[in-house]
């Protein structure tokens, strides 16, 4: 059964993903799809932007695409 809030877009959740492996903005957006978080597209973009600015992750290019990552 689909739930409107089986995934939460939080700083902790983003941190966990970025510690595990480098991700593009699109990879992150896939992890926090609007149908799973219950947020609108605009809210998702705004919240994720705030979280990324706060976490200030490392960046590197892989296959010409910018990836964010964190070390523990």
């Amino acid at each position: 059964t689909p739930s409107s809030s089986d995934v939460q877009l939080t700083e902790e959740a983003v941190k966990r993903y970025l510690i595990r492996k480098p991700m593009t903005t699109k990879d992150l957006l896939k992890k926090f799809q609007t149908k799973r978080t219950g947020l609108s597209s605009e809210q998702t973009v705004n919240v994720l932007a705030q979280i990324l600015k706060k976490l200030n992750p490392e960046r590197k290019n892989i296959n010409d695409k910018m990836h964010f990552y964190l070390t523990e």
Binding site: L29, S41, V45, A49
Partner: peptide, 20 residues
């Protein structure tokens, strides 16, 4: 859809522009 995902990624990157 993937085009919506592309638009969201572009919007997010624009938000992060000064930061990146």
């Amino acid at each position: 859809s993937s085009s919506e995902a592309d638009e969201m990624a572009a919007a997010l990157e624009a938000e992060l522009n000064d930061f990146i």
